[in-house]
Design a protein around this nucleic acid. Structure first.
Lengths: 228, 228
DNA sequence: GTCTATAGCTTGATAGAC
DNA sequence: GTCTATCAAGCTATAGAC
């Protein structure tokens, strides 16, 4: 009579589900969606391949679930940082560099202290962003709301910026940021070991200032051009 | 007795080989290496699947041949632009923005006037750059020499820059540049049509100045920090 | 919830006719 | 140089036992 409510899955089932998500996240990050098989994911998770269908429906739905899981967490974190600096700023709002830092800093923090899962997730995002197959639709779904929130804060502080300059700034920031977290080892080779892909702290130290300077320079050029 | 020399392939064979390269380039760019089958490539090329083995050895070797074909052309073009601005510059060398433009402008030019093949190639490069599976090794093979040549020109003009700042600048430039040419349609959605992924001219107008400002700002911060 | 078994395809590669 | 035929292996997905 007293059945376990179906909405409250058993502890074991939940653990299996999470194992599959973890394994998929890791392998998709390493080899891309098409480079990984359901069997490989199940093996990595120590579970049966049939359970992918049981829990998610299929390979593609598992992929979506991987993206879903951390997307919401990341963006809540970003919103919290943005609201924090807005609360402490004067009526003109936080500075461009504070805003850009609020956008990038959560990635650093989660990458450094969140464990390998977060690192894999960011690496996966790096690939998806640059792939026509996913980069438009999937990325928009998860990140357009936070991007618009962030660009609105920038525009409030720098009202003379044009829409085009604002969106291209986001584009350049996005490209630099996701390549960072892809951690491909490229810069390690190029620099002969002087810089390391995994040295996220070195990037966080440089990226916000770099992007802010690019952004403000773009705005200045536009204004100079319009005066002439 | 008078055989056709084996080193001089027939016109028809050469055309088939090129068709396979074109088809592979297009499909790899759209769906990544693992997302494309040899059969699909052959169909797109209007050739028989067995010819992939005949001309290239296998799928992976075809992939390498796709990267090889345009890599050398692109980098010769970049070297030519760099040498041109160096020839016209004073003893202090060309400005940072001229140097960065020499690095990015050939992509714009080839993307705009080189046909769909070049567009596919750049899109493919965008994906590879952000994928751990290829982004370290393959990219280094084709682009480390040109990257070092370019960074050397920057260092000559701004000798006080540190090695680390130089390589991270390349990293940020690289990320922004390859996302641009991936043309995923993301910014079209985000901006509600105000900006278009395919509007390479708008990017070329903004990217060199953006990166230059970021670079010079990084150098200035370093100097300010060391004085304190 | 988990697993076995397997259906039904598709894969990359190749041997050999033309 | 091109194509047919085919192989062994691997794929996703699913039906059904436990």
């Amino acid at each position: 009579m007293a059945d376990t409510p179906p909405s409250r899955p058993s502890r074991r089932g939940e653990r299996t589900r999470e194992s599959l998500l973890d394994a998929a996240e890791k392998l998709f990050a390493e080899m891309s969606f098409h480079g990984v098989t359901v069997r490989a994911i199940a093996k990595e998770a120590g579970a049966d391949p049939a359970l992918v269908a049981y829990y998610f429906g299929g390979k593609r739905e598992l992929f979506d679930a991987v993206l879903e899981r951390r997307g919401a967490v990341l963006n809540r974190y970003r919103i919290a940082e943005l609201e924090e600096i807005e609360a402490h700023a004067g009526p003109e709002g936080p500075s461009p560099e504070e805003i850009i830092t609020a956008f990038t800093h959560p990635l650093l923090e989660l990458s450094a202290t969140g464990g390998d899962g977060w690192k894999s997730y960011f690496s996966l995002i790096g690939q998806i962003t640059n792939t026509p197959e996913w980069g438009g639709e999937v990325m928009s779904k998860y990140f357009d709301p936070i991007a618009n929130r962030f660009l609105e804060a920038l525009r409030k502080r720098v009202p003379e910026v044009t829409k085009e300059d604002l969106y291209w700034t986001y584009h350049f920031l996005s490209g630099a940021l996701v390549l960072t977290y892809a951690e491909t080892g490229r810069i390690d080779r190029l620099s002969g070991g002087v810089c390391r892909s995994t040295d996220i702290a070195s990037i966080q130290e440089r990226l916000p200032g770099f992007i802010t300077a690019g952004f403000l320079n773009m705005v200045e050029r536009r204004k100079a051009k319009e005066q002439s």
